[in-house]
């Protein structure tokens, strides 16, 4: 598979109501969501969204319910039509595609996983998994061979002939994932895919997804309301509130430099040891003659484990070539891992 293409969302507006188009200017002039609703009876869904989703990476869109995150992901395969703006995949604007082009785009370039699984209840696991290929017209035998691989990959081998409601929630979502992967599309859209699962299963599924991404390098757009999930999965995170992006960046950016009080409140409870990298905390002005080494790019929590294991107070941070690039000490590590009192 060629290098995955990213997705550019530019100046995207969605206003629900009969005269959405007319309302865009009012929103650009700064009318609030409440005012728009009260005076004009239109609902502001998305307000000037600009996100550059990198190819081959996981882009998380985070927000609470009503923030517009599910609306946003449905613009990428145009299950919802935008009021204004562009969604670019390579040189193609998804918003300008004809019905036929859009269908081809959905068939070959995207696959989606849903919060409520949305499996076809009258079809077995195998028949669900081949659904995407079936409507593309791939011969049944080939489709089933390809699907069987993904069913096994998500750990459902032996369940091919079961019906969805014979399976637990976690297993059903594995079917959803297998169905999406069988499509072999560039873009994987995951709409709160793990939100309906209980915490242990959710962790488990996150691991499955991260493992898969390691080999597949798809462009994944992952919607969630759970910051821990966002930080664990996201190469980049965009935070949405009232239909607008209020901050975007890496997980570390968001935890260390929350854009406002709203996000600061959010990140307060986060396990910072699992977000912040040693590189952020290390002292680059010096290196040690000897002592333990820690690789660059790992998380503080893992560094803390090295300190605990070795009993040393300081360690060299080494880059890929094994060359020391800085020093990390226990005090700074612990200090960075606890939540700053000022927030």
């Amino acid at each position: 598979m060629a290098e995955a293409t990213g997705i550019e969302v530019r100046n995207l507006y969605k206003i629900f109501g009969p005269d959405g188009k007319e309302m865009v200017q009012k929103v650009k002039d700064g009318i609030s969501k409440t005012e728009l609703n009260e005076k004009f009876n239109h609902v502001l869904g998305l307000n000037d969204i600009n996100i550059s989703m990198p190819g081959g990476k996981i882009q998380v869109v985070m927000g609470l319910s009503g923030s517009g995150k599910s609306t946003l992901i449905r613009h990428i395969n145009r299950l919802i039509d935008p009021t204004a703006g562009e969604v670019l995949y390579g040189n193609d604007d998804v918003c300008k595609m004809s019905q036929k082009e859009l269908r081809e785009f959905r068939r070959h370039k995207t696959a989606m996983v849903f919060q409520k699984f949305a499996l076809l209840p009258h079809r077995t696991v195998m028949k669900n998994a081949v659904y995407g290929l079936e409507i593309q017209g791939v011969p049944a035998k080939e489709a089933e061979e390809r699907a069987a691989r993904w069913i096994a990959r998500v750990g459902l081998e032996g369940f091919e002939d079961h019906y969805p409601n014979q399976l637990s929630g976690g297993m059903q979502q594995r079917v959803g994932l297998a169905r999406a992967l069988t499509n072999d599309a560039d873009i994987l859209l995951m709409d709160e895919a793990f939100s309906a699962l209980d915490p242990l299963i959710r962790m488990d599924m996150q691991t499955v997804l991260l493992d898969l991404q390691e080999e597949l390098h798809k462009t994944i757009v992952f919607i969630t309301h759970d910051l821990d999930e966002a930080l664990r999965l996201g190469d980049r995170i965009a935070i949405l509130r009232d239909g607008a992006v209020i901050q975007q960046g890496t997980g570390q950016d968001i935890v260390l430099k929350p854009a406002d009080g709203y996000i600061a409140d959010f990140v307060k409870e986060v396990n910072r040891g699992r977000v912040i990298l040693v590189d952020t905390v290390m002292d680059t002005s010096r290196t040690l003659e000897n002592g333990p080494t820690i690789s660059s790019g790992i998380l503080l929590e893992e560094a803390a484990r090295t300190f605990a294991d070795t009993g040393e107070g300081e360690a060299n941070i080494v880059n890929e070539d094994g060359r020391p690039i800085g020093v990390l000490n226990v005090h700074d590590t612990i200090y960075a891992m606890v939540t700053p009192a000022t927030h």
Partner: peptide, 29 residues
Amino acid sequence: VDTDVLEAADAFGSSARQKLMNVQLPLAL
């Protein structure tokens, strides 16, 4: 027929006819 399932059928690029034959009629049966 469950709108979630229909949305999934749309998301995978089903034509109106495919949606009818694969999803709507079987589930309405």
